[in-house]
Write a protein that binds this DNA or RNA. Sequence first.
DNA 1: ACCTGAACACCGTTCAAGT
DNA 2: ACCTGAACACCGTTCAAGT
Lengths: 239, 239
Amino acid sequence: MAEQGMKTAGKGAGRRTPLTREAILEAALHLCSPEGGGSLTFAKLGKELGADPTAVYRHFRDKDELVLALTDLLIAEAVELASGPNQARGHWRETLTDMSMAIRKVHLARPALAVLCAVRTTASPTETESVERIIGLLHSAGLPVIEAAECYRMLLDLTLAFVQVSATWMMLDPQAQAKDDAAWAVKYGLLPADRFPLLHQSSARLTELFRDDDAVFGLVLETFLDGVARRVARAQDER
Amino acid sequence: MAEQGMKTAGKGAGRRTPLTREAILEAALHLCSPEGGGSLTFAKLGKELGADPTAVYRHFRDKDELVLALTDLLIAEAVELASGPNQARGHWRETLTDMSMAIRKVHLARPALAVLCAVRTTASPTETESVERIIGLLHSAGLPVIEAAECYRMLLDLTLAFVQVSATWMMLDPQAQAKDDAAWAVKYGLLPADRFPLLHQSSARLTELFRDDDAVFGLVLETFLDGVARRVARAQDER
DNA sequence: ACCTGAACACCGTTCAAGT
DNA sequence: ACCTGAACACCGTTCAAGT
């Protein structure tokens, strides 16, 4: 990430209007995106707002309060994105996939925030309604309510866990990233075919998947949902 | 984490023997465990070794080199732990479960390290042999080699992703943890049964699972492996 | 009532000086 | 050859002083 100042937002040099919560949140959200600089610090936030860095403390008690407020915005964005095209009634599998992908997309557009909020919980009411709907969908598919809730929970955690890893990787400094890439090349690149025949055979595919986090997550999601499908089938047999 | 100095290891006050790579690694590993203080900084490492904090730079180029060396130790420990009781020949499902659980256990015993290394790759030869063996097991079960390699990759990423989340949560400062707990209680505790009938019905189970990361991961692993089993069954049908 | 700016504790890292 | 200690850049945060 470049050490340059950026005046992309509609503010900057001649700030005179007093700071507002909304202006701070907007600026912070922008800083968390790669285009906005890709990291969230009080110094950068102050520069972006054209104010003293510590001025933010007048509106948020500490950085954690700021992060939690940003988290609510992110969740709202994800819920909106997921409930866009396919309305209330789709197949449960599509709906779960859409939800998961929406959460992933919204987070990975702001890695610097994702890394701070993917393990957190906020009590946003927007989300609650969406959860009720999804549990309902799984229940309609044949799963007992408790099991439907479990599946929802698993999928949410699965999605956020992979988000956390991808975002952490994105936030890693380029030197460390390069070292990892090199290690990977050594590891699966030049394996003696006689000692590691199977790895040798599959090394092309493994290399393909190496830094394609989206592809790996896609595969994991499919496999996991196959497992959920088996639960659904089992529940239907028992009735 | 207490701000106290600790002289738990067999060193401390009167160091005279010169620093070695091994002594540094041992001390660092200890610092990363909850009993050892739970965080890895040069200041603490220096105190633990009874040396100036910057003395470590004579043996590791920077913190990242130290972390990567520690990662290799962790991987070796996991491989050893996993290949303990059940020898080469077990059912593939048990073997995969053992491997996953061993990786999880070894990492979560040092959250401060896990948080730094769960997304990293090192080229440790110890690991490579274990991977070849596991792909072989899945291949014997009926999966084509490429697909066996994919399943291995998915499971490893799945395991490390959940490790990363659990470790990040453990490293969160207690105040933030308390806020999350409170948010959760608000969210699923007092939901109006008329507006959220399904969530209301399952709130007991959801609360039960809330901070029980091990339980959630156990469920996810089972469901994921059900998905892998389906792949295996499908592959056998095609022959 | 809100903002500024100096100050502090805590990170990783560098480098000249010690033995 | 290895270690020490002062110094620096960069974090979040506090607080007295400004308007």
